[in-house]
Nucleic acid binder design. Structure first.
Length: 576
RNA sequence: GCAUCGAUGGUCUAGUGGUAUGACUUUGGCCUUCCAAGCCAAUAGCCCGGGUUCAAUUCCCGGUCGAUGCACCA
């Protein structure tokens, strides 16, 4: 059995025992990379997602959509996932070891081999030694192991489909409808929370690398020339620790600076990216990430996707896993919309009207088809098209059709000078994408919340979860399980439930044991009914972190608990 | 995916070719006027499949999961 030697073991022990996270399909043998959220885990996950919603939907005004998890092959051909989201692997014929073929080639100084056609690639590999057994590889089959789960849609037809590797593609494919929904104006944002799937080769790290995971993604569509955020002032003075590219190269610690300063100094590409770095910092701290163990690391140029203009990861320090990426914030430019426009033939542009209608003089060439047709017959159409794009001189113009130079005299076309009104232009928006890994967020919050402290000579295990994410918000106990105290306590629990508070009644065992049980699952407050309650109608509220108590009247209890949970008041203020 | 090691109630564990020890937890009862107290009782376990054997939790093979190393990680 694993020793309880590190924080991960301790956190996961509590998580398993108390019903946060379990191995999935355990009774039939669990499968790596899949987990079940138990009663408390599901509650906490929902709390995190709802806090996320309060940032993105309530504050930012972005709307949420829900797309299918399974998509037809064409979506992922267009997005590049079919081609790019794969590892190129070979199996050594001698020892049977699976190897990353492109990495093997790179080890021997052959860069970019992964881009070669399969046949050429095999020839490159032919002479190379296997990195496992050292034998010459010889004939191998180059197979590409795609990280997407494949499936078929419908019976018989065997139409190929994939489980989405990110929720983003659904938002991109809905872009024309979303644009209409937002009444054809930029900028606008759309969010989606849901499951995504990646068939990881080796999902070792518990909750950190899952094959099925939850994402919360936002796609903000902006004008490519307008990357100033209209509400940037909200976060302009917000400070966050930034590990920029130069700092990584020079091995320096993060630089804590305001978003305004970071954008002005060119450390962050634009206000949008900076805005979401700051927003993410606030959000992560609010769900319970320790700000001292949070930083934003800029992707190195060779690390970020070729199309991305700038990309930052929110990284949280884990005692077990080191710095863990929990959020990615990228300026994806127009890559995705261009790709879907190209593959689907659907326009992915926004019409941006000019402030004033521009009158533009332009020269239009009108081929005289009555003359061209009889003269050039089959080639007439191609010649006409070439004419339209040409810049004719006085006598005529020479156009090139199918490699042949043809002189067209001026009487075979007209040149018209005309003035047209241009009311605006079609623009493919750029996309700013903050993408959150909910499962990783939940794990790091558990890890940062986990604490052991000595109380007398006993160890107290406590999850210092923020009230907003704690799965149980308040516990209600009768001090004694008699004299009607239990009845009063049950009534109180019912009243709190009516106010939308997740309250747990518990009358089992000594009062101290009940407090400890709630400490371990992070319940921030406990209400205890004692003999004074019968005298004066007051109960105690006990604070999880300080273990101190304060008396309040039963009448004031729901409002008091509500404001404690929402953070409009604190326990400390209540005691004062 | 490869190599090494491991897997016993919910948790931590003792132990064994003849189905298993203790503690904690949980549940019920007694007791108890605020932080895992005490007493009584109960529930509950040898990862899965195959082989060897009269008999396998134990030995062998395969698998699953976990740890570690390698490889991998938009």
């Amino acid at each position: 059995m694993a020793e309880m030697n590190d924080i991960y073991e301790k956190v996961m022990d509590v998580a398993r025992r108390r019903g946060f996270v379990w191995p999935s399909s355990e009774i039939y043998g669990s499968v790596a990379g899949f987990i079940d959220y138990g009663p408390l885990g599901a509650m906490m996950k929902r709390n995190i997602e709802n806090l996320w919603r309060s940032f993105y939907i309530v504050q930012e005004g972005y709307y949420e959509i829900e797309c299918p998890i399974i998509g037809p092959e064409t979506i992922f051909v267009a997005s590049g996932h079919v081609k790019e989201f794969a590892d190129i692997m070979i199996q050594c014929p001698q020892c049977g070891e699976y190897l990353r073929a492109d990495h093997l080639a790179a080890e021997h100084g052959i860069e970019g081999a992964g881009a070669l056609p399969a046949e050429a690639f095999r020839e490159v590999l032919y002479e190379l030694p296997c990195s496992a057994c050292g034998e010459r590889l010889g004939d191998t089959d180059v197979v590409s192991f795609n990280l997407m789960f494949e499936t078929t849609i419908g019976p018989g037809s065997q139409r190929r489909g994939y489980l989405r590797p990110e929720t983003a593609q659904g938002i991109f494919t809905d872009f024309p409808r979303l644009l209409r929904f937002y009444r054809d104006k930029l900028p606008f944002g759309v969010v989606q929370i849901g499951k995504s799937y990646r068939n990881e080769i080796s999902p070792r790290q518990g909750m950190i690398r899952l094959r099925e995971f939850s994402q919360a993604e936002a796609e903000i569509f902006v004008h490519p020339d307008e990357k100033r955020h209209p509400a940037f002032h909200r976060y302009a003075d917000y400070k966050a620790p930034l590990l920029t590219i130069p700092q990584q190269l020079e091995n320096k610690p993060p630089l804590t600076t305001t978003m305004r300063a970071a954008v002005d100094a060119g450390l962050i590409a634009n206000e949008y990216v900076a805005y979401f770095i700051a927003l993410t910092h606030r959000l992560l701290v609010e769900i319970g990430v320790d700000p001292a163990r949070l930083r934003f690391r800029q992707h190195l140029t060779d690390e970020r996707a070729h199309y991305a203009e700038d990309c930052w990861d929110a990284e949280v320090y884990s005692g077990r896993f080191g710095w863990v990426e929990v959020v990615g914030i990228a300026d994806r430019t127009d890559y995705d919309l261009q790709a879907h426009a190209r593959h689907s033939g659907t326009s992915m542009t926004v019409f941006i009207p000019y402030d004033e209608v521009k009158r533009v003089k332009r020269r239009r060439i009108v081929p005289d088809m009555g003359m061209l047709g009889p003269k050039f017959r089959g080639r007439a159409k191609a010649i006409a098209e070439a004419l339209v794009a040409s810049d004719p001189g006085k006598e005529g113009v020479t156009v090139v059709v199918d490699g042949e130079e043809i002189f067209i005299p001026a009487d075979l076309y007209q040149v018209r000078e005309e003035e047209v009104e241009v009311r605006g232009e079609e623009v493919v928006p750029h996309v700013i994408e903050p993408s959150y890994g909910i499962d990783r967020m939940l794990y790091v919050v558990l890890e940062h919340a986990y604490a052991e402290e000595m109380v007398g000579d006993e160890v107290r295990t406590v999850l210092r979860l923020p009230p907003a994410v704690a799965p149980v918000q308040v516990a209600v106990f009768p001090l004694m399980n008699r004299d009607g105290l239990d009845v009063i306590a049950q009534q109180i629990a019912g009243t709190l439930a009516q106010h939308g508070i997740i309250a747990q009644y518990d009358d089992s065992g000594a009062i101290g044991r009940r407090y400890r049980r709630q400490d371990e699952i992070g319940t921030p407050f406990a209400v205890t009914v004692d003999y004074d309650t019968k005298e004066d109608g007051t109960v105690t509220i006990r604070d999880r972190d300080s273990m101190e108590q304060v008396r309040v009247s039963i009448d004031a209890l729901p409002a008091t608990v509500c404001s404690l949970i929402s953070g409009t008041t604190t326990f400390r203020k209540l005691r004062a």
